[in-house]
Nucleic acid binder design. Structure first.
Lengths: 147, 147
DNA sequence: TATTGTTATACTCTATAACTATA
DNA sequence: TATAGTTATAGAGTATAACAATA
């Protein structure tokens, strides 16, 4: 039986709207950046290494929906900046484990990154109820990104 | 006075989480694409033209957080595909108004675009309550993208 | 002189292809 | 033969710089 009141938008409509919102927001975020600042992919790889401990290029690339060669580039840049370091795999000579350095852990705690500063400032303009709505949606978006 | 129970995450924490979620989701979305399919920027420009009517390159670029030269490229590709057409500005000879063609309006209604199909399928796995949470967050993300 | 739009060029991020080394 | 990683190259998307036309 169909309910006429407070009908939620269709999946088609909702997914279409979400698509547009994500696109605009990511362009806005990308434009908020200081020279030599990490991009979203580098931040994401660093966060995952902190959460799950040392990982290989292949595992990280799968987790971040990216080709291994692309993840290799990202890890090379993070290594050059001293945020991660390599350690040999204990049993498989082919594999290389990447782990956070102390500098990498510190970087994760940095509040000065332009993208974070801009986003926090933008969210600060929301009402408490709006912030709660957005917070509740974050894990859902994470699941979309993982799936 | 501080409240200890059900404390919401700090703005720093929330913005950091949102940053990561957006990054992963946008990469996932970008990977969902058929040959010659529109990208998120093209979809966004098309949607805005439908919502607000004919606009100039400069206005669109401001609205979409993009440089006028970049928007010019996007509009040129949309024009080549027959989704938009040019019309002269009534009073200012420098400006060019871009408007949706019938083909462009039809494209907006297409449900077959890979990104939309993937996203709708992923959202279909959510519970009704989760879908409602996500739907409520969409206008908030739009405001973040606009601001 | 300021603004609109165009053209040319370069940078960032990610993908594809070909290769080496280990399993 | 299959998998992990590297190197080289190419593509998509956007930016910067220089320019012409109109205001």
């Amino acid at each position: 039986m169909k309910v006429a009141l407070d009908r939620p938008p269709s999946l088609d409509k909702a997914s279409s709207e979400l698509l547009l919102a994500i696109g605009q927001l990511v362009r806005k975020l990308r434009s908020q950046s200081n020279p030599n600042e990490m991009n979203l992919s580098q931040m994401s790889a660093l966060a995952r290494l902190e959460q799950f401990g040392p990982m290989t290029t292949a595992d990280l690339s799968r987790a971040e929906a990216m080709k291994p060669q692309s993840m290799g580039t990202i890890l090379a840049s993070l290594e050059q900046d001293g945020f991660v370091h390599r350690q040999p795999h204990p049993t498989d000579g082919r594999q290389i484990l990447f782990a956070l350095t102390d500098k990498g852990k510190e970087e994760r705690r940095q509040r000065g990154i332009a993208k974070r500063v801009w986003l926090a400032a933008a969210m600060a303009k929301f009402t408490p109820a709006e912030r709660q709505t957005l917070n509740a949606a974050i894990p859902l978006m994470k699941r979309l990104g993982d799936g």
